[in-house]
Write a protein that binds this DNA or RNA. Structure first.
Lengths: 120, 120
DNA sequence: TTGACACATTCCGATATAGGCATATGATGG
DNA sequence: CCATCATATGCCTATATCGGAATGTGTCAA
């Protein structure tokens, strides 16, 4: 199997930076594809493709306006994401407290000789 | 180009459901790989791979404990995600407000008898 | 040292992405 | 109907994923 489809999830859809930028821009109101493409420095087909993904996960809606098609934000799908991540809120505060402890541990470990390979 | 690496971002790392489940489990405290694998119904290599990704984006830390390696949560990397998504909070509330309006409109429309075909 | 256990890494295959480019579809105005 | 503008889609390549199975590495205990 390959990675889950970008269209399978809001999580997957917003994993792509350019799509995130599109969403941010759309907070300012409905806009046509060409506008978005220009403002984000991407080609029109690129923008269209990203918008297709966003539409398929329901983060964006289209509305025909004559020759143009106005894309608008529908942020409801971001709520579950926000809630899931929010479930870790108390842990990242906590992490800051423990950071000191952790640094101490690291120093000790290094003095006792390298155990953990530095990753990356 | 292909999709951005799963290790390039917290956004990308948490796009994978199994990795999200791992993180949730780790809220309960440090745990060895085998434990996680068993609880999530995946093979040990799978779990190891996912943990590697999580480690590379800094969402997880390892600590050698004799024969075992205890994985622990480091949720700090989730904070930016939470903040980014939080930037849309007022938009999904707004959507809900409009949803109500819309529902009201629908009810009225039905009472007055069908006028316009709904689009899509 | 050897065996046993915990875990990491590698190789494979199938899949789907993002980007670039060309082109099709669609609506508008004349 | 035609030319034009706005947008969508198709095709192609390179890349990276996830999954599975096998195997490598590391640590303890006797």
């Amino acid at each position: 199997m390959a990675r889950a489809a970008t269209t399978s999830d809001a999580f997957n859809a917003i994993a792509e930076p350019q799509r995130r930028e599109i969403l941010v821009l759309l907070r300012g109101g409905e806009r046509p594809v060409t506008d978005l493409a220009r403002d984000l420095g991407m080609t029109q087909p690129q923008a269209s493709k990203h918008l297709r993904v966003l539409r398929e996960v329901g983060l964006v809606r289209v509305r025909g306006a004559g020759k143009q098609r106005l894309y608008g934000l529908d942020a409801r799908g971001l709520r579950p994401v926000h809630e899931w991540v929010g479930g870790f809120e108390r842990f990242w505060s906590e992490s800051f407290d423990r950071l000191d402890e952790y640094v101490q541990e690291l120093k000790q470990a290094r003095q006792e000789g390298p155990h953990d390979g530095d990753d990356q």
